[in-house]
Simulated scan of single mutants.
Amino acid sequence: MYSKRELKIIRNEPNRGKSLRDEHNCCVSFRNKMVNLKVIAEYFEATIGDHLKIKLREIQRRVASRMHVNVNITRCRRAKKMVMDKLAENFVHEFAKNPRSTIKMAVDRVTPESPPHFKRSI
């Protein structure tokens, strides 16, 4: 059941019961320690991957609207960095599969000092 309340996990509780009481005297909480940067990075990995220049405030707003939790900018920054590092690692890993492969390109230079203009692959 979805109740927007902070979840507290008590490990190794000696008198743990099997019943559920659905009575709450607490107010709605917008803080949850379980929504850490790893959870944010996994949840928004596709969004950040599609929009590499997404602003941190936009990530913060999306976390608030979809997860109903307020997080600070530092947590969003670290989650975005985690996703960017993972994407960069995947890029390097993908192109390191065959290190002996070469590509030959025909280039044209207007003058010897000018930058090359690619014509076509050979």
Rank of each mutant, 00 (worst) to 15 (best):
Y2N: 12
S3H: 07
K4W: 11
N12F: 15
P14L: 08
G17W: 04
K18I: 06
S19I: 08
S19F: 09
L20G: 08
R21P: 03
H24K: 08
N25R: 14
N25A: 11
C27I: 11
V28S: 04
S29D: 14
S29K: 04
M34S: 13
M34Q: 09
M34W: 12
M34T: 08
L37C: 13
V39G: 02
F44E: 00
E45N: 11
A46H: 06
I48W: 00
K53D: 00
K53L: 01
K53T: 00
K53E: 00
K55I: 07
I59C: 01
I59W: 01
R61F: 04
S65Y: 04
R66H: 15
R66Q: 15
M67P: 09
M67I: 10
I73P: 01
T74K: 10
C76G: 03
R77A: 06
R78A: 03
A79G: 09
K81T: 09
M82W: 04
K86V: 01
K86C: 04
A88G: 06
N90I: 03
F91Y: 12
F91W: 07
V92A: 14
A96N: 15
A96S: 15
A96R: 12
P99I: 05
P99M: 05
T102I: 13
I103E: 07
K104N: 11
V107R: 02
R109N: 10
E113D: 11
E113G: 03
H117V: 12
F118G: 08
K119R: 14
K119W: 04
S121Q: 12
S121C: 08
I122P: 11
